[in-house]
Design a protein around this nucleic acid. Structure first.
Length: 476
RNA sequence: GUCAGGGUAGCUCAACGGUGGAGCAGGGCUUUCAUAAGGCCAAGGUUGUGGGUUCGAGUCCCGCCCCUGACACCA
């Protein structure tokens, strides 16, 4: 039976446009998905949009559109962005879809039936600027320091989820699964957060027209994140999740608490299996400055892809910024890596082997060739790096081999050799390129195909056919 | 403030308590199969700071300075 692998990205707020940070998370998930696919696994890769937020309503108001029209338009932008970046998601979920609404209400009922939802009063100091309740400690002289306004005291009826009840179960979960959240530092923060003690949390809002109604009480709308998390189930159905929950939730560090604390508690209450693993990446700065709407410095990944190519962008992001850590994006660095690693490195190597090989093509391949056994060795370390989301290190393995091939060519000098000796030297480089291409394929799917078009390997007849065409990465 | 992580070459990062390394950038030499690409070589550091432990400290202990993150309902 085929192994299953289910990986998800966060669902992104529709009112935000895709920027480099979203692209990073999604590309990382895509690399993982593609890798598992090359292993012959049955991969489900889910991404989508979170549309039931109050922010969606405001966004629509701002652009003068009907909420539904607005959400449709923006969701389409997200979808096409991922297509353009060669993201191979198998599904795209929108939280306004019927399948999601039904699932959310069903999960609500299960949690309700388990006695974990109750009605209470939610009150506190509400800052209009934040659209959030503030704690007194956040205030300076009773005034919100960010908005310089005095928060109002408001109270509304809310449904609450008995999160506190799951404190011990969560701590046991963390203890039993040392890799539940990576990187470790973040996991530590999660643990200490829970150890300090949990409070029940409100999971509904009153007086809102947009969102999923609470079952049997349409005066209330289910709070966005409670609804949002359930998307991971909606996409594959409750039965599907029951049989095989997510193997990996890839998220940004801003939403760890929801995924590592509230989500497992919700699932425990609904008597459903838990995700296996949550991997979090950091935040981006652009040229050392935080990404912010007011600065308008968010970079559209599509612009970069247009300029440097999709694969170059994918490569740069995962090679430059170690997964889990905060990173700085700069086009100067992108260009540096493009020229050093892609043009001078991979691209140039393929060009030299293709030109050399073309003259002696076809070359017969013999399975006893000494390089053949390296194929397996090459993959062991690499497999480990990918499975632990250390993409930068996995790529480094590929680039070490590229450098070795360049050096080997200088030593072998096949251009001075004749006949079978010449073919033999070039063959070694072709085999090595097969290994390298294998390693890079999840990261650079388009490039891998282009390499295979130039240096094609016929397994049945054990022969290489080589034909030089365009350069993979023209220098910038 | 409390807790956690970090401060090493121009940049990004490595270094079981045992002569501080790599990649990129910059410098020199060199090859022609290749995209003014490749190869080789050299240079580059009082490891944030002040003490301490030790035969020996980037690594362990204490103080200080600086950076980042977490400390619940914007996500």
């Amino acid at each position: 039976m085929k192994n299953k692998f289910y990986i998800t990205t966060p669902i992104y707020y529709v009112n935000d446009r895709p920027h480099i940070g979203h692209a990073y998370t999604t590309i990382a998930a895509d690399v993982s998905a593609r890798y598992h696919r090359t292993k012959g696994e049955d991969v489900i890769f889910l991404t989508g949009t979170d549309e039931n937020s109050q922010k969606t309503v405001e966004g629509a108001k701002k652009s003068g559109e009907d909420v539904k029209t607005y959400a449709d338009r923006l969701a389409a932008i997200w979808k096409s962005t991922w297509e353009a970046l060669n993201i191979g998601n198998t599904d795209f979920i929108r939280t306004t879809e019927e399948r999601h609404v039904k699932t959310v209400q069903e999960i609500w009922k299960r949690i309700w039936d388990n006695g974990d939802i109750y009605k209470g009063k939610y009150e506190g100091l509400y800052c209009k600027g934040h659209e959030a309740f503030m704690k007194e400690v956040d205030l300076v002289d009773g005034v919100c320091s960010d908005h310089k306004t005095k928060p109002e005291w408001i109270a509304e009826d809310n449904y609450f989820f008995k999160l506190k009840k799951y404190e011990k179960d969560l701590l046991k979960l963390y203890g039993d699964n040392p890799n539940f959240v990576t990187p470790e530092g973040r996991f530590h923060e999660v643990k200490s957060f829970v150890e300090r003690g949990l409070e029940d949390i409100s999971i509904s809002r009153e007086k809102q027209e947009w969102g999923i109604p609470v079952p049997n009480d349409n005066k209330h709308v289910i709070y966005v994140w409670f609804d949002a998390l359930i998307n991971y189930i909606s996409a594959i159905g409750i039965d599907g999740w029951q049989k095989h929950p997510a193997d990996v939730h890839a998220i940004g560090k801003d939403i760890i608490r929801f995924h590592a604390v509230i989500w497992p508690a919700m699932l425990m209450s609904a008597k459903l299996p838990l995700p296996k693993r949550i991997v979090t990446n950091g935040f981006f700065t652009i040229d050392g400055v935080k990404i912010s709407k007011s600065l308008g410095n968010a970079i559209d990944p599509l612009d970069l892809a247009k300029k440097y190519g999709v694969d170059a962008l994918r490569y740069f992001l995962l090679r430059e910024i170690p997964y889990g850590e905060d990173g700085d994006f700069s086009e100067v660095k992108l260009k540096e890596r493009y020229n050093a690693d892609l043009a001078n490195g991979l691209g140039n190597l393929v060009a030299r082997v293709a030109t050399l090989g073309e003259k002696v093509s076809p070359i017969k391949y013999n399975y006893t060739h000494p390089l053949h056994k390296l194929l397996k060795e090459a993959h062991e370390e690499y497999d480990y790096k990918i499975s632990t989301f250390r993409f930068d290190e996995a790529l480094e393995i590929g680039w070490k081999r590229i450098a070795q091939s360049d050096a080997a060519l200088s030593v072998d000098q096949p251009w001075y050799k004749e006949g079978s000796e010449r073919a033999e030297k070039i063959l070694s480089r072709c085999i090595e390129l097969v290994i390298i291409t294998d390693l890079l394929e999840p990261f650079l799917p388009e490039t891998a195909q282009k390499i295979k078009d130039q240096i094609s390997y016929d397994r049945t007849n054990k022969v290489f056919h080589i034909k030089k065409t365009e350069n993979l990465f023209p220098r910038k």
